[in-house]
């Protein structure tokens, strides 16, 4: 059996990216081959290295090629504050948007029993070890505002409570620039319950 032409293999391979269908994959392939071979070679090199070397930080579980990620290794960071997020993307979002000086813990998902994801699968045993070290004084729960995110926050809150560590949860509600008229009822109800003194 003749093997698939290389061009077809490239197009098929590119389709593993999220949001990339047959058409886009084809366009990407032609672009790299016709216009930007150097860029393509560079991409291939970096991609291969990244897939080989990037793993999870042994402290916070974020993606890094080192044993301990840069954030965890940085002594300037306040070790008494720990922000728990679902994904590395959430972590980088907070890093960019807020002047947060504490540390992170990246779960890599949320509790979702129906997908077979329990406490162990999102590294809560590691988080519990971390709490046991006694450095953390406040834990900021920045999981998503979904039912699963809420359950995850609740579970971690109970863990922290058992060790008498203070937990806080990020506020949910009306987005900045949002008009009440267009906010859905669920969000509005949450915003109302979580109102803060003015």
């Amino acid at each position: 059996m003749a093997s698939q032409p290389l061009l077809d293999q490239l197009i098929t391979a590119l389709r593993c990216l999220p949001g990339v269908g047959a058409k886009t994959a084809q366009r990407m392939s032609y672009y790299l081959l016709d216009r930007d071979r150097e860029g393509g070679k560079h991409l291939a090199r970096v991609l291969a290295e990244a897939m080989q070397q990037i793993g999870h930080c042994s402290r916070c579980r974020t993606l890094t090629e080192m044993e301990v990620c840069r954030l965890c290794a940085n002594p300037q960071r306040d070790a008494s504050l720990l922000c728990v997020v679902e994904t590395p993307a959430d972590q980088s979002m907070i890093e960019q948007a807020i002047d947060y000086r504490g540390r992170y813990f990246v779960l890599g998902g949320h509790l979702s029993p129906l997908d077979g994801i329990g406490p162990r699968e999102i590294g809560l045993d590691l988080l519990d070890q971390r709490l046991a070290e006694g450095e953390v004084e406040e834990m900021i729960l920045a999981t998503n505002a979904t039912v699963e995110g809420e359950a995850t926050a609740q579970y971690i809150h109970d863990m922290a409570k058992a060790r008498s560590i203070k937990t806080t949860r990020i506020a949910h509600g009306v987005p900045m620039g949002g008009e009440l008229e267009y906010v859905d009822g669920v969000t509005l109800a949450h915003a109302f319950r979580g109102r803060a003194e003015f």
Partner: peptide, 12 residues
């Protein structure tokens, strides 16, 4: 086994 039972174990 039911996965959601794991939530009740442990810390809670």
């Amino acid at each position: 086994p039911l996965k959601s039972r794991e939530l009740f174990r442990g810390f809670v």
